[in-house]
């Protein structure tokens, strides 16, 4: 019996020392499940600069270069929407999981098709959004929503540059953030509020439709 206790004692000390010393290298390896978005349609004959000042979002028929650009942000938007739905459902676990997925989609983002100016802006957006995704992956629900607020702004700005082939609805919740309000994007026209979830599910209004 004593032997067992002694061993547990030693183990406990060892554990404490280890937890204290082991660095925070918990960056996961991202297995890239939906990362094959960038190589498609490489043969398109358009040059980079040609499409400047041309968002591709205001009219229905995108040319192939715009489509290519829109494809690049698809995985990010996909996981963002799933994350939004988890918050609508008040699911901390679901949101955490999608935060993780969104982080790897952000890491895989390929800015190769954009102009220098756009790339700089995109880098800032991706850097900021990654931090929010990281926090969403490891925080309680209230905190996840706080980060989702700023993340939504990032994703809206990202789409303004990349465009998208999806139809999205930009919604606004006037109450969140001490009545300063907060935006979010949805794949459905019906309002389902991710900031308050079941507490105030239908609270909010449509700001604009994208595509």
């Amino acid at each position: 019996m004593k032997k067992v206790r002694a061993t547990t004692g030693i183990l406990a000390i060892a554990m404490i020392t280890f937890t204290a010393t082991s660095c925070k290298d918990n960056k996961k390896e991202h297995d890239n499940t939906d990362g094959h978005h960038s190589q498609q349609m490489e043969e398109s004959g358009h040059m980079e600069g040609e499409n400047e000042g041309h968002s591709g979002m205001d009219h229905g028929d995108m040319d192939s270069m715009d489509k290519e650009k829109a494809m690049v942000s698809s995985p990010i938007i996909g996981h963002y929407i799933k994350l939004k739905n988890a918050l609508v459902a008040d699911s901390k676990e679901g949101a955490a999981e999608e935060g993780e997925n969104l982080l790897s989609a952000l890491n895989d983002f390929d800015q190769g098709k954009f102009t220098g100016e756009q790339q700089k802006e995109l880098r800032d957006i991706i850097e900021d959004a990654s931090e929010h995704a990281e926090h969403i992956a490891k925080s309680p629900l209230g905190h996840q929503r706080e980060h989702f607020d700023v993340l939504s702004k990032d994703v809206i700005d990202l789409i303004a540059i990349t465009g998208t082939d999806k139809t999205l609805y930009q919604d606004f919740c006037p109450m969140y953030n001490n009545n300063k309000g907060a935006q979010w994007l949805s794949e459905n026209k019906e309002i389902k509020n991710p900031y308050y979830g079941s507490k105030m599910l239908s609270c909010g209004s449509l700001e604009k439709q994208i595509n």
Binding site: D124, I125, E127, D128, E131, H132, H143, E146, V150, D154
Partner: peptide
């Protein structure tokens, strides 16, 4: 920090 990031950080500080 980029101004986007500054804005995020200030918001986190407040929260």
């Amino acid at each position: 920090y980029s101004s986007r990031r500054k804005n995020s950080k200030l918001k986190s500080i407040i929260n």
